[in-house]
Design a protein around this nucleic acid. Structure first.
Lengths: 191, 191
DNA sequence: GTCTATAGGGGGATAGAC
DNA sequence: GTCTATCCCCCTATAGAC
């Protein structure tokens, strides 16, 4: 494995800081300190802080989308997979590393919005497909709209992160998920 | 009605800016410009930007909590009230004015966290009470945990705001709510 | 109670040597 | 490709006149 270039070190530092403090609060100086790089290096490799952050977010999204692919693959019953996704371990008291950025002013820039949307889209698609499969398996009433329900569950996970961060308490997110799962279980009795 | 004092003008400006850009991105200069006040006035009436924002948030929460009280009062069937709350008109593409602050570093300070928690608590309590009433009315299965379900719906509204802001599209929030309502309707058939 | 003036520090970025 | 040195602007806050 080749020695990490300054470029990679800068990207790694940006990824860490984006998760820890977000975009606006991450200054080029912070990035430089953490990557042991100097202003010249940052602006040699990237035209701006935004460009660096955009590339960092893009790589983070790509990696997380691949990870989530794993959660939704396999041949477990569809509703079991949905449950596994909703109850997956998350560092929820820190929020969602993608959802966190949504309220920053700079989400206006596609460099940041793009990766966030890509992340959400991947989850929504997986959920919609899995819920449709549940309907085929007879564990979810076919009167329900799988696409809409996928948006509901995606929103739920994001909202759970908001509550967990607000209360500094993971259990708020867990309660939100469990409430939804009990509702899904109840509805499935009519399938 | 007495002429607005600089103090009130400063609070009003802070309220507007907290909604438009959030806390960190709202500079004392912005507040001063919008309220036609000068640095001296701001720091005469408030010890810091944080104290001003805290008081502004506190007043905003108080007002919104009173408004929401209205949504949950009246003698409509409980599940109808829940639907009314979930589908209430929101400026969702801008996010939730309370949930928005949760990801800022300064949420660490109780001046900001307090009002946000108070807002969430008020909604959670109203939802839990209304869902319990639905169970008494026979429109929600008693096996479900009304308290947990209240957290679920609170999270859902927050998540809907995150999605709507991400996609600059209110319909994402609406889909999330409709999905949840269809699930509640389905579950209620077993009540 | 409101004003003018200003301070100290950090923000994002650039120039140019090596 | 990485470094040192530096720029200009805005951030939050303070001092003290009116």
């Amino acid at each position: 494995m080749p020695k990490a270039s300054k470029r990679e070190q800068l990207l790694d530092a940006a990824k860490e800081l984006l998760w820890e403090v977000g975009y606006e609060a991450m200054s080029p100086r912070d990035i430089q300190t953490r990557s042991a790089a100097r202003p010249g290096s940052l602006y040699h490799h990237f035209p701006s802080k935004l460009a660096l952050a955009g590339e960092a977010m893009s790589e983070l999204a790509e990696k997380d989308i691949a990870r989530i692919q794993g959660v939704f693959s396999g041949d477990a019953p569809a509703m079991e997979t949905v449950g596994r996704y909703l109850l997956a371990k998350r560092d929820a008291t820190r929020g969602c590393r993608f959802g966190r950025l949504v309220n920053e002013a700079s989400i206006e820039h596609d460099e940041l919005r793009g990766p966030v949307k890509a992340f959400f889209e991947a989850i929504r698609t997986h959920l919609a497909g899995t819920l449709a499969r549940a309907q085929a398996e007879g564990t979810l009433p076919t009167e329900l709209d799988a696409e809409k329900l996928a948006v509901t569950l995606l929103a739920l996970v994001q909202g759970g992160a908001v509550l967990a961060r607000t209360y500094k308490d993971e259990s708020l997110a867990r309660q939100a998920m469990e409430g939804a799962l009990s509702l899904l279980a109840e509805a499935s009795r009519g399938a």
